[in-house]
Write a protein that binds this DNA or RNA. Structure first.
Lengths: 215, 215
DNA sequence: TTGACAGATATACAGTGTATGTTTAACACC
DNA sequence: GGTGTTAAACATACACTGTATATCTGTCAA
């Protein structure tokens, strides 16, 4: 076993693998160490704490988000960034939990904010408007994706899931949920809500906002 | 010390107190037990596991959300519910973290969905439209509030915080963030983003959606 | 060859959730 | 009132967590 072979990068590589495969709750320093053929305490020569590991992991996630390009039309760029954020969050299911805990995410987030602000300001937004716009878009992305991550049923199985659970939903107690499930089970709609629906609602609102009168 | 004095309700009472005061991470079965003058294992006569404690806590939180009333105009009711959700989530900072982990929240959530769906359907939405609308609104509430909970600075101190951090933001590396912070520090705007801004964007979009043509 | 020292290791500690087995207090019934 | 029955509180134990501290060791500069 060679010396000097361990680096923070390799630790984060392994940590992301574990988290992606088994979830963050399965990530322990001892497990991480044994995956790298090393003892737990060796990791502390390269990272300060487990929280730092989590922080570095989050940084990698944020870096994967498509950053708006300088010359692009703001609406197109925001749409692209939003879809990218969702995809990244979905592909690392553990990231959402970390995002809303007090874990910092280093300066990857600064680069993202910088690019986003820049694109919006170039598109005619004031800084205050850009702030509000970014916040509104991010709110939707985070909120939608969190809900999506918590939905226990596979998108392809809404109909059959609805049919399965239908008898468990008391028609007397929850008439509307019952009726909605019935419609899904019958195939009248698929029970999926659309990410783009809310996003376009917001983008359209922003378009009107910067174009016309203002709040 | 009387026997038979411990109940699940009292356990949850104590758990909420601990979580509100010190955060969920400070909540352990042993600490909870000692607060109730009891040993850790006694708790397990009343609750199945720590996860069940968390689930019951979440249920209480969800119950606090203002449910839409049967006769009310949908938009007013949705606005009221959204603001209420935000307030409830802000007053129990630990709830957000739990909401997006795999912890279930019992049937408090069913009562909320039932009332919300019913109100929207009464307002002319189809079930599919009601589903989408609820999802869009909830996305914003969750996402906005999560971001709000993570903002390290107190809303009243944006200006001074911006002034403090300004020198730490490299003007060369992050020109737009620098400029935005400068504007905040100078008091040109307060750096606060508005919950209602995004919410009204969505409500307006929904209004147009149910009124006019459709996607 | 010999220090020096970075980095791997061993040990230990205080904490976690909870499985398991035992004790005890409160109630129903003779 | 005495006596089972039983639910609830308790004690112990286990496997695990993150990490502080102290020790050992392989590699490189002198």
């Amino acid at each position: 076993m060679k010396r000097r072979s361990l680096t923070a990068d390799k630790i984060i590589d392994a940590a992301m693998e574990v988290a992606d495969a088994e979830g963050v709750e399965a990530l322990s320093m001892r497990k991480l160490a044994s995956l790298l053929n090393v003892t737990a305490m060796s990791l502390y020569n390269h990272v300060g704490s487990k929280d730092e590991v989590l922080e570095l992991m989050l940084g990698r996630v944020v870096t994967q988000i498509a950053r708006p390009e300088a010359g692009g039309y703001w609406e197109t760029m925001m749409r692209r960034r939003a879809h990218s954020m969702r995809e990244v969050l979905l592909s690392h299911r553990w990231a959402s939990t970390l995002l809303i805990s007090r874990i910092s995410m280093g300066d990857a987030i600064l680069r993202d904010i910088e690019a986003t602000l820049g694109c919006l300001v170039a598109g005619g937004f004031t800084y205050r408007q850009a702030d509000w716009a970014r916040n509104a878009i991010d709110s939707h992305v985070y909120g939608y994706t969190f809900q999506e991550l918590n939905t226990p049923v596979d998108p392809d199985e809404y109909r059959s899931a609805a049919a399965t659970y239908l008898p468990m939903i008391s028609q007397a107690e929850y008439p509307h949920i019952h009726e909605a499930s019935l419609e899904i089970a019958k195939g009248e709609y698929d029970g999926r809500t659309d990410f783009s629906f809310g996003l376009e609602l917001i983008l359209k609102g922003l378009r009107n906002w910067v174009a016309g009168t203002a709040p």
